[in-house]
């Protein structure tokens, strides 16, 4: 599964972009999506270095391809106004972290990621995620928007 209830983190208080990426990567290790934290963090930071994944609308989508990724995953984390050097200059309050294995043969999850990216452009979808009170509600929203 690309997203499960345990891949959702609500109300993370960390204010620093890199620390958030590290925090989410450790969580990915905890729930068995990756085999090692550091190589994945490096892959994500490397991508981030090319240009910011803060795509505007308060959303960031840090992502990395690495051979420590077991299978493709998405982590969702709600944060408190973090500077992500976003394209539109706004602070980020929702982070979708995406991990993809280096050697990836299936297109299935890429299609889901493409779908997720498209939905993120919808204001209604974003507001629903912002207002959700708990993990179950987020899962409901993702189901409603046909992402899972």
């Amino acid at each position: 599964m690309l997203i499960t209830k345990e891949s959702i983190l609500l109300d993370c208080a960390i204010k620093d972009k890199e620390q958030i990426i590290r925090r989410m990567a450790s969580h990915a290790l905890q729930i068995n999506r990756i085999t090692d934290v550091e190589p994945f963090v490096q892959a994500v930071l490397h991508r981030e270095g090319e240009f910011s994944t803060g795509v505007g609308y308060g959303i960031a989508i840090p992502h990395g391809k690495s051979n420590v990724v077991r299978e493709a995953f998405v982590l969702f984390c709600r944060v408190d106004h973090v500077d992500w050097s976003s394209l539109d200059g706004t602070d980020v309050d929702m982070v979708f972290m995406i991990g993809v294995p280096e050697m990836d043969t299936s297109n299935e999850h890429l299609k889901i990621l493409a779908l997720l990216s498209r939905k993120l452009m919808k204001d209604e979808f974003r507001q629903a995620l912002r207002n959700a009170l708990h993990e179950d509600e987020i899962m409901e929203i993702l189901k409603k928007w046909e992402i899972i």
């Binding site: 890429l110 990621l113 493409a114 990216s117 498209r118 452009m121």
Partner: peptide, 18 residues
């Protein structure tokens, strides 16, 4: 986009919607 994971589709959606 270079990675082709997210931005490609976000841009597509933004353009379609607009």
């Amino acid at each position: 986009c270079p990675t082709g994971i997210a931005h490609t589709y976000m841009a597509a959606e933004a353009i379609s919607e607009a």
